[in-house]
């Protein structure tokens, strides 16, 4: 069992999610099954093979350095959970 309660708690913290106790057990076994797939892939001989980063053989996709967007602040802020004075408003976040 690689997904011990400690590992799960750590992952929850890093992913900013909180699981209920019963979900936690289910998730652990699902993730274990997932890791088994990874184990199977790891057995493949990849000696001398270049890693594939993209499925398309495309490189150098650029746009020119031009300003094409206008000020749409009010529209963009409509998507925010909360706003104030033209800013996105969030809970107090300290450094």
């Amino acid at each position: 069992m690689r997904f011990t309660p400690e590992v799960l708690l750590d992952l929850e913290e890093q992913s900013k999610i909180r699981l209920s106790d019963e979900r936690r057990e289910k998730v652990a076994s699902e993730m274990e099954a997932f890791l088994e797939c990874v184990d199977a892939m790891k057995k493949t001989d990849t000696e001398g093979m270049e890693p594939l980063y993209h499925i398309f053989p495309t490189t150098n996709v650029f746009r020119e350095d031009e300003v094409t967007n206008t000020n749409r602040r009010e529209e963009l802020l409509e998507n925010a959970p909360d706003q104030k004075d033209g800013y996105f408003k969030v809970p107090v976040t300290l450094e």
Partner: peptide, 16 residues
Amino acid sequence: CGCSARFGDEANAHVC
């Protein structure tokens, strides 16, 4: 993206 990178404008003026 095509938003302006200019400094010093009103908050969130250059957001898409």
